[in-house]
Design a binder for these strands. Structure first.
Lengths: 258, 258
DNA sequence: CACTTTTGTCCTTTATAGTGGACATTATTC
DNA sequence: GAATAATGTCCACTATAAAGGACAAAAGTG
């Protein structure tokens, strides 16, 4: 028999939750909404008693992981969270090298360069360098986006079979922001092609004005662990797109360890 | 009567600890050591049962806040921690503006520019731009340093009375890495002077070869919430130090809101 | 103004998470 | 190769933390 599951679909919803689980739910809720939130709102969002959340947020505030924002009742990530994150970014060799690559790419091309990866069954931007050009439709770092909306997503799934892919992605994620639907078969074919070509380009997919260019960074086993990606206007010259894509492919290959 | 206190000196040491407190202890221990650590070591450092730490670290790993590093038994911060930290840094207006200021300062001067603040009764580097020059004795981001070792520390305490200052700083923190001791009176006088001058310079203090230059960023009430700081060789020309200091003072004033 | 909603705190109850040990397995050390 | 230490997992016990509600005060709302 199936256990009752909550809306995130992966955790059994017990009536009494662990404090650490609650704390993680709080942090993830803040990452999702990407905006300072009141404790009451948090309680509503994650379906927890307010009294519990007050005691946990207070403890997290005391530790500096959360901070009271402005002077009205909302909380958001604090300085300590920033320090933890920097410790990660500085210690992770791949991440360090990727940051340097982003700097180079954004500098040389004036386009917006991003480092992208999976987080669960969603796509997230892990780091960005905003290009010096005016064009910047930039997804916020850490905000989860449905995989089929992105060029990078097609590369990040290229180790999976068709069945695994369709099982992995929630049905609703195939619907684009403007209501169009990505056909499952088309999507699987896209992935196969991206794998064969070692890169992926999408035009006007998640956004009508945006072209995304992406190349995979692979670990020693060939698994795409992240992607480098450029965001440019969809009406950029084909030659420019090609040139940018080639740069991405080269940088991403240098970052791969195989 | 005094409760039993653990070595960090501020938390009552109960025999049975809260899971969230344990989790925070784990994260702070990793930030302190600034290196991937085994669960057993963590347990030793924070004085907790191994069985407890295994269950908590596993939960944190599952959430992506921690990651298993390499393939041998150690854990460190994970990608999710990075995302939390970026969310903080992107949302915090002061922090955003400081990052831009650091970029400018490091670029224009080729010196290492840092953003510093207090964390409890210690000094920490919150962000750095390593200068293009060869000279870089850089404190790692997030690592706690005794306040009397730093120029910034003198500015960050300039709202306190002499008594408050001496009460705030642990006695052992007045001993420099090379064994010399900062006299309490001298330190208090340093702070008064730093406040009067609106900046602080130290030569060969925490490190024999380093000169630290710092200027305060103040909130509307005049409290120094952070500092901008340059790290240069102690034998740099006095005129250069003066010029760098003036740049810091100007940038820091622009970032202050008063 | 009355009325609703939200906020922050406090209290009691009870399911359960943290503890401390035991245990079989690897790693180290000498 | 024996001896020691560290690793990861499991279990039973009970102090305690999450829950769920109650409450006054503040903030919106009409």
């Amino acid at each position: 028999m199936d256990a009752i599951v909550n809306k995130s679909g992966n955790k059994p919803a017990r009536e009494r939750q662990n404090g650490i689980d609650r704390a993680i739910e709080i942090l993830d809720a803040l990452l999702r909404t990407h905006t300072p939130t009141t404790v009451g709102d948090l309680a509503k969002q994650i379906g927890a008693p307010r009294s519990t959340l007050y005691s946990i947020t207070n403890r997290l505030i005391e530790a500096g992981i959360l901070e009271q924002v402005g002077d009205e009742g909302t909380v958001y990530f604090g300085q300590t969270a920033h320090l933890y994150g920097r410790a990660y970014a500085d210690a992770n060799p791949l991440h360090r090298r990727c940051r340097e690559a982003l700097d180079r790419l954004a500098m040389q091309t004036t386009a917006t360069a991003q480092l992208c990866a999976l987080r669960g069954n969603k796509y997230v931007v892990v780091d960005t360098r905003d290009g010096s050009g005016v064009f910047r439709i930039t997804t916020d770092i850490g905000v989860e986006v449905p995989i089929p909306w992105t060029a990078s997503g097609r590369l990040l799934l290229d180790h999976m079979s068709a069945a695994e892919i369709l099982d992995f992605i929630p049905d609703e994620d195939f619907t684009l922001p403007d209501g169009r639907v990505v056909e499952a078969n088309t999507f699987v074919a896209d992935i196969a092609r991206a794998r064969a070509e070692g890169s992926c380009m999408t035009n006007g997919l998640s956004d009508r004005f945006t072209c995304c260019l992406a190349a995979p960074i692979r670990d020693r086993r060939g698994l795409a662990v992240a992607t480098l990606c450029f965001i440019v206007p969809v009406d950029s010259a084909p030659e420019r797109k090609r040139e940018l894509l080639d740069r991405l492919i080269e940088s991403a290959r240098e970052l791969s360890d195989q």
